[in-house]
Design a protein around this nucleic acid. Structure first.
Lengths: 373, 373
DNA sequence: TTGTAGGCGTTATCAA
DNA sequence: TTGATAACGCCTACAA
């Protein structure tokens, strides 16, 4: 008798049906644009719907249809501008097709990732977009099974065992191009500030591309010129300082833009100049890359487009069904600005700029979260 | 007889019950940690759950309980780094409490906002976080009603008519502080690059704070020194150029950091220097603000904390129920770097840095989305 | 402590 | 073309 507690009172199909003096199915048919409804009925029902302010319950609908028009998006960290762009691409595609999505951050923590997937599945998502997964393939399989379509981006080879599409940004190629660019512009010794290769597939790939470039140029690989660090400004700063204590390469190819920015600061603090003494190339082309001084030469990943692509491929899988696993390559491109020294804008006054950068960075480093990309 | 099409086969309570040889309610009680279950039962049921890989359906649960543990987050644009930070704050709080959330971008388009809200409500969200709403108060009310808890941030006064909490970053105070800072450092004429005051409450507030500072300093307000533009780098660039064609204020307080960055470029192109000829102060303290040259003096909004606050207040409303509308002030703080000229780091060589900035910006401006903040 | 019945709001099925 | 009824998977209420 008593209202259930906490229950939101919403207008239901049944109420609309009673109001209009028809059956619930008729109302349902009108709502879903079923063709075999007389105009008279349609009008009458529509009036009732408007009068009562009826809104169909997606929940109830999902329960009975088994499809929710809902997607789970799992990624490392939305506060990372890279993913902000990317997910915007997802959203635009998904929303247009009537899908909503849940967002989950993992911080690249396998535990959090697992929890997120569990939650999403129990919420009945129709599909998953997984960015930079850290789970093993068989573990993912155990969690997800073969029924749920998955698009995995920059994750370790889940295409082997699932109803999934695997997208990889062309990290190897991009890293090779970047490194070759430096070599071809006369930098004899090119070092590499590597990302966390244990945790990130992309870090491994970019390192591989770097090595490949050396090999193609008949330059022997020297581990002394490679320093691993966290993929943040501070991580790049520290890795570069370490490296500079023993060696002074003519150029550094960095895992990503943030590390590159950190490297610039470190180089400057060491009394050297970018790009005159050490040239720098980053990766990603985040928004900030063009705004720092010197503007960063970098390998651009069109983040928004990548997000769109992922969602489009997901929708395709959702609509067709029974598609075999497949892998898709996402191209990247070198964007030449000043930090690589290929252009001729540099002068000695960069000293001053760098001091400013150092000053301001010193203030902000404490707030720099290490997981930021 | 035939399987329904497209239906995902999931293990149900009933199947677990049969497997364990108990009733569904016993299983349900175990799943929900009901206290009055014998250890024996609990064990038996738990085994069945594990054996079958049972996962409760949040959908079915929501349908019957009327609560989904789901929140809708509506904001202008997630690719805007400001919101990336903010939403991360939301996520951390919500996830910890077992809530998932849907993300919707509005691009500050009332149509999209309305569509998003309709969708979210029909999906059965328990509450809403609405950022920078552009809907009228009564329209929101019509859409949402009084049952759904709402936290509105930097939106026009929805607190008047709903089960809502209204959070406003202290834009007026912040703008006043920024402007006074410029005045107190000897800038006689302080102009303002305003945001889109028709569309954004925050733009109105920051303009108001600017005017207030003038008034408190007994400086007459002069509309010639205020120029409105889009809240982007390009918007700031264009607005500044316009302004500079007729006047040369000693300082510019800008609606946000992006406009400030654009203004720096424009000033430099006009053969002037920041901060020597014209001092600049921005607003927001986005990630990039400390990385440009000169590093930007700005009014910091702790974006992550703001996100956390919004979600905490929402949860409070969700748990207590029947709370009256209330408004919460979120403090901001001036962060002094170089662009305001209060510190003494500037030299003539900034010319060179600026040229670099200009060069790189010229390349990237076509990709600059005007809605970015 | 456990089980049974009913219903949450919708769609699928099939009969009228 | 319309309508009655049975699911969908779960929880609340109440009975055993």
């Amino acid at each position: 008798m008593a209202q259930r507690t906490n229950r939101k009172k919403n207008v239901t199909l049944k109420e609309v049906a009673e109001y209009a003096g028809v059956s619930v199915m008729t109302v349902s048919n009108v709502v879903n644009d079923w063709p075999y409804v007389s105009d008279e009925m349609r009008l009458k029902v529509q009036e009732a719907i408007d009068a009562l302010g009826y809104r169909p319950s997606a929940l109830a609908r999902s329960l009975v249809t088994g499809r929710s028009r809902t997607v789970g998006v799992v990624l490392p960290d939305i506060s990372n501008p890279f993913f902000g762009q990317a997910i915007r691409g997802c959203e635009d595609v998904l929303t247009e097709q009537g899908y909503s999505f849940f967002l989950c951050n993992t911080d690249e923590d396998p535990q959090k990732e697992k929890a997120a997937l569990e939650t999403l599945i129990s919420r009945g998502v129709d599909a998953l977009i997984i960015w930079g997964s850290r789970s093993e393939c068989d573990e993912l399989y155990k969690l997800i099974g073969n029924d749920l379509p998955v698009v995995a981006i920059d994750s370790p080879a889940p295409q082997l065992c699932m109803n999934s599409t695997y997208i990889y940004a062309d990290n190897i190629q991009g890293a090779e191009t970047a490194t070759l660019h430096l070599i071809h512009h006369g930098r004899k010794t090119v070092g590499h500030l590597a990302g966390p290769s244990q945790r990130r597939l992309t870090a491994q790939q970019r390192l591989a591309g770097y090595k490949q470039a050396l090999e193609n140029s008949a330059i022997p690989y020297n581990a002394d010129f490679v320093m691993e660090g966290k993929p943040s400004i501070r991580g790049g700063y520290q890795a570069a300082l370490h490296l500079l204590q023993k060696h002074t390469p003519a150029a550094l190819f960095c895992y990503n833009d943030l590390m590159a920015i950190g490297a610039i600061v470190a180089i400057q603090q060491s009394g050297l100049e970018v790009p005159d003494d050490i040239a720098i190339v980053g990766f990603d082309d985040i928004f900030t890359a063009s705004l720092v001084v010197p503007p960063l030469t970098t390998v651009r990943i069109q983040q928004y487009d990548l997000g769109k692509l992922s969602s489009n491929l997901l929708l395709e899988r959702l609509q067709k069904g029974g598609m075999p696993p497949n892998a898709v390559n996402f191209p990247v491109e070198l964007v030449v600005r000043d930090s690589c020294g290929a252009t001729r804008l540099s002068k000695e006054q960069k000293q001053e700029m760098m001091e400013n950068l150092v000053t301001s960075l010193a203030v902000d480093l404490p707030n720099d979260t290490d997981t930021n990309e």
